[in-house]
Nucleic acid binder design. Structure first.
Lengths: 254, 254
DNA sequence: CGTCGCTTTGATTAATGTCAATAGAGGTGG
DNA sequence: CCACCTCTATTGACATTAATCAAAGCGACG
C-alpha cells in the first residue's frame, strides 16, 4: 500500500466519512418508512419504481459524515429514517448548526458545485442516493418531483428566515422556548403530543441556537423551575405549559 | 364616512401601504432594466410577452410597503429597479432584516397562505406584479420559469445559511466585514469594483446583522482606523484592503 | 466499582446593548 | 446665501447578557 493511501486513511479516521453500508434491494420502496412522506409521497407507485431504479439505498451509523462542506456535489440524498445535523464550521472551531433533518428531507439541491454544509448522522440514518447529473432528466420525466422540491425549498427558506430572527434578536431563553416548540409533533397519535424526544445533545442544540451548552443548560433549568417544561432524562422533554412557552418564545412574556 | 373607515386610514398612515403608482404600458419589457437579469432573462422574447400579459407594472416610492408580514398572499413580484428590505418584527419592536432585494429578485413564492415578512422600499422601486393563482399555469406553460425559480430559491437558501453562521457565531466586526464584502460587485465595469454604495442606513444594517446601529457605527470606525475600508459619506464605502477584510470576515484575523 | 462523557451549576470576564450627548449632512425658508 | 431645523451617524459612559473558565454531579458501561 503506497504512502498516499495511508494518508487518505488517516484523514478519513480523523473525520470519519467512511463508506456507507450500501444495500441494493430493488423492492425497497414498498417497505420504506418514508414511502408516504416527502418526495416519495408526491409520486405514483409506477413513477416511484422508475425513480427507485436511479437510486441507491444506503445506511450510515451515528457520528458518520454523509457529506462534508466543500465536497464536490456528486449526489442528492433523500432521508428515509434517522436524524442528521447540518452545520458550517469556521476555521477556529466555531460551529453553526443550520438545521436538523429526518425522514422525508431532501439534501443536495442547488446551483453550487460544492456542498455548503456538512451533514452528520445523529443516529442510524437510512437514505436513498441519486446521481446529480440524472436530476435534470428526472425533472422532465416527473414534473411532480420538481414541483415538490420547489415547495420544499420554499418551506426551508421560511424556516431559515424564522431562524434568522431567532439568532439575530431573541434572548437565550426565548431561543430555547422557540426551539422546543418546533419539536412538538401535532400528528403524534397515541403518545402525549407535548412530550418530545430530541435526537441531539446540549452542544448541538447550542450550536443550532447560537449559544453555548452551558447557556442552553441554564435556560432549560429556568424553564423547568417556572414549570413550563419538565425534563425526563437529557433528551426527553415534556411541554407542561405550551401557551406560556409560546409567549416566552415570541418575546411576549419574560 | 363611518368610523371604522377612519380607523383604517389611521393605520394606513402609521404604516403607509398606500396604492402603488401603476403603469400599464404593454411594451414595457423591451425597455425594462431587468430584461436580461433574473427571471426575464430565462425566457425568450415571445414567452416573455406572454408572461408580460399576465403582469402589471408598478412603481413604489421610498419608505412604502410592498407587502406586509401576515398579509394574505395574492401576488408575486419581480423587482425591475430599486432596492427593498425584507424584515420580520417582534411585538415589542425588535426587528430582523432577513434580506435586501434589487433588480432581478423574485418575491412571494411559498406554500404558505400569508407572507412571512414585510417588504419596504429603500428607494424608488419598480416591479411587475403577478396574480398568485396564475402561477401554476405559468409553470406548466414555461418550464424554464419553474426551473429558474427553483435555482433562485436554492441560492437564497445558501445565502440564508451563510447568514445563520454570521448571526449565530460571528463577532460584530466579523459581521460588518462579511456584510461589506457581500456588496462588492465583481461585474462593476468602469467604476472601482471595490467602491460600494449601500442602499440602506446604519439602523437597517444593524437590523440585518443582529446588532445595534451604535455597534455598526463603532465597528465601521474600527475598520476605517485599521485602513481596511474608507468612508466617503454615510452610504459610500471603499474597500481598501479586500484580502484583510476577508480574513476579518472569516474570523481568521482579529 | 471506577472511568468516561455529558450535563449542570458556580464565579468571573468580555462583548455588546442601553442611555445620553455631540457632530455632521441635507433640506427649507427667510 | 446663510441660518435654522431635522434626521442620521458618531462617540462616550455605564449596564446587562451570555461566554469563559472551573468544578461537581450523573448515568452508562466495562
Amino acid at each position: 500500500m503506497p504512502l498516499h493511501d495511508l494518508a487518505t486513511i488517516d484523514v478519513a479516521d480523523a473525520h470519519p466519512p467512511g463508506p456507507a453500508i450500501e444495500r441494493t434491494t430493488s423492492t425497497h420502496c414498498g417497505t420504506c418508512a418514508a414511502r408516504y412522506i416527502g418526495l416519495c409521497d408526491a409520486l405514483s407507485a409506477v413513477d416511484l419504481q422508475e425513480l427507485a431504479d436511479a437510486a441507491c439505498w444506503c445506511s450510515l451509523p451515528k457520528g458518520r459524515i454523509l457529506m462534508a462542506e466543500g465536497d464536490r456535489i456528486l449526489y442528492f440524498f433523500n432521508i428515509s429514517a434517522g436524524h442528521a445535523k447540518l452545520y458550517k464550521d469556521m476555521q477556529d472551531g466555531r460551529r453553526q448548526v443550520i438545521g436538523f433533518v429526518s425522514a422525508g428531507s431532501f439534501l443536495g439541491l442547488g446551483t453550487q458545485d460544492h456542498y455548503g454544509f456538512t451533514t452528520e448522522a445523529l443516529d442510524e440514518v437510512q437514505f436513498c442516493r441519486f446521481e446529480r447529473r440524472k436530476l435534470r432528466n428526472l425533472f422532465t420525466r416527473f414534473p411532480a418531483l420538481e414541483l415538490h422540491l420547489l415547495a420544499a425549498t420554499c418551506n426551508e427558506l421560511v424556516v431559515a428566515q424564522a431562524q434568522m430572527l431567532l439568532l439575530g434578536r431573541k434572548t437565550a431563553i426565548e431561543r430555547l422556548a422557540t426551539f422546543l416548540l418546533g419539536w412538538v409533533d401535532p400528528s403524534a397519535g397515541g403518545g402525549d403530543p407535548d412530550s418530545i424526544v430530541l435526537p441531539m445533545g446540549r452542544s448541538d442544540t447550542a450550536d443550532y441556537l447560537g449559544l453555548t451548552n452551558e447557556t442552553v443548560s441554564r435556560s432549560l433549568t429556568l424553564l423547568r423551575k417556572r414549570h413550563l417544561i419538565a425534563l425526563n432524562g437529557d433528551q426527553n422533554i415534556t411541554i407542561v405549559d405550551p401557551v406560556a412557552l409560546r409567549a416566552v418564545g415570541d418575546g411576549v412574556a419574560k
